[in-house]
Amino acid sequence: MPLNINLQQILLHLFNFAILFGGLYLLLYKPVKDFMDKREAKYKAMADEAAQKNSQADELKAQYQAKLDQADQEIALRKKTAQQEMQDKLSQEEADAHQKAEQILAKARREAEADKASIMEDASKQIRSLAEDAASKLARKSVSDVYDEFLNTADTAADGSDSSAVKGGDPA
């Protein structure tokens, strides 16, 4: 054949290629490739696991954040409620105190009024008593004096009318 192409030589080369291909595949390519694939699979699994854990952590973080937000809202609500309750209580207490004060004041007024009335009554009683006493004393002491005074007054009056009549004065 031209160029010394020889089918037997070609087949010999192909036979050698087959041996070399099989040998290299079994001895070198496959074990090294298997090792690399296993390592890749391991690191891929680790990466997947890390990604999964990361996503779980993100999810947990979101959950906790939601819970925190909820807790914040609850705290704010409770704070508001407590403030409102405190305000109500204060108002209530203030109203109670005011009412109590009013009651105390009213009671005091009533008592004062009662006291005043009592005092006034006592005073009037005392005054009356004193007056009666005084009157009785006066009455007892000066019946004679009064009589005397009356007499004196009458005398004086009598004297006066006489002198005016003498002088031409008013008979009254």
Partner: peptide, 25 residues
């Protein structure tokens, strides 16, 4: 058989490569 030198060269290359591959393996 009568062979071209390239076939003998093939054997050498094959032997060297397979021996190296076996040693590495």
């Amino acid at each position: 058989m009568l062979m071209n030198p390239s076939v003998i060269a093939d054997w050498w290359i094959m032997g060297i490569l397979l021996a190296a591959a076996a040693l590495i393996r």
